[in-house]
Design a protein around this nucleic acid. Structure first.
Lengths: 206, 206
DNA sequence: CCATAATGTGAACGTTGTTAACATTAACAT
DNA sequence: ATGTTAATGTTAACAACGTTCACATTATGG
């Protein structure tokens, strides 16, 4: 169990010393967050679990925040996959139906992966947002949402109104997810996602 | 500046050793969070700034989370004050107008006190929510919101529908606040609060 | 006025993120 | 193939953190 099998008997490619430490660290990071939550994640523990020294992490990530950003990027990749699957499944529904399907997917992701979700959307850390993988995946999610909202909108609406509606849609869904996630109000006061998504109806500005 | 004036010359009551350490620690906690953000807050620093040993904190709070909960309670007290002021100012407007005023207040509070806000609504810590002051103040905020939503709602609506609308309203506002706070999307894509609050219109379920 | 509970202190423990100095290994030019 | 170099990993140390313990001090009530 503890013997450091150095032989290349195992199938993997194992290029450098470890093979691909960066990826392994991200894997373990995701695993640990899913298991014990975001706050409990320590750089040292991730290194320990990957059977590598803590200092080794710094060969691949500038600091803990950089590792977290990479983990968040993985989360965005996953949620985008879920989005695309949802849109595929709702192909035959109208624009509003597809938008609601996105909302359902979003909320389901948040409740299924609370730790990852908190990391992805509760960032506000310095250095965050300056990570390529994170940046592009997050932008893609935003784009998918924007396109779906635009399609659900009457044709004559201005670009400004579409943007406002997109933000409103995201705000509604995101807010609901966060409120449930953080247990902000007792479960008996918490209607299910459908009741809330029923309020997701684009409207002309007053 | 550093001389520990033990004399009772200063006007304050100064009952016990310190006078009221618990309150002083909460004060300093709020101050530090407003100044440097939530993540930067350390129990030791709060003690240091209050010119007291770190261990002294444990005479008044079970652990760091308990101190944080007390600080959050203070935040809820403040937001409730703001809510009441807003309702007073919007007295002559109709129910929907008052609801929008609440939303504006909520968002303004979040953007003005980002650290406190994150602490109040990004809890999900064990032990959180079991603190009396926090619990009751948070419940009060929820009650104010619920009443305003109910008033803005058609009379014939069911209690269930009102609850759903309340949660939807809070979700929309909370989500928007969080998205702005965490800088989740570039400022040029971020419409102002009014555009989003325009979507805050109660509607019958489909 | 004294016993006792309430309140504060200093030192210590284990853990964390991070850095520096050093060791090993893979890659490549010759 | 071989030796140089850059990439990758290790050990040891640092300061800061949350927390606890044994002890000191102070206020309060019988």
């Amino acid at each position: 169990m503890k013997a450091p099998e150095k032989s290349t008997s195992k199938g993997a490619v194992r290029a450098y010393h470890h093979g691909d430490l960066a990826a392994a660290l991200i894997d373990e990071g995701v695993r640990a967050i899913e298991e014990s939550g975001l706050e409990a994640l320590s750089l040292r523990a991730v290194a320990r679990q990957t059977e590598v020294s803590a200092a080794a992490v710094y060969r691949h990530f500038a600091d803990k925040d950089a590792l977290l950003a990479a983990i968040a990027g993985r989360g965005f990749t996953e949620i985008n996959r879920a989005f695309e699957a949802a849109l595929e499944g709702a192909k035959r529904r109208n624009a509003l139906g597809r938008l609601r399907a996105l909302g359902q997917t979003y909320i389901a992701f948040a409740l299924t992966h609370p730790g990852l979700y908190r990391l992805m959307f509760g960032a506000a850390r310095p250095g965050f947002g300056r990570h390529d993988a994170l940046e592009s995946e997050a932008a893609k999610a935003w784009q998918i949402l924007g396109e779906t909202v635009a399609a659900a909108f009457p044709a004559q609406s201005t670009a400004r109104a579409i943007k406002a509606a997109t933000v409103a849609a995201w705000s509604l869904v995101h807010g609901y997810a966060v409120l449930r996630l953080e247990g902000q109000l007792p479960p008996e006061d918490m209607p299910d996602a459908d009741s809330v998504l029923a309020n997701l109806v684009p409207r002309e500005p007053d």
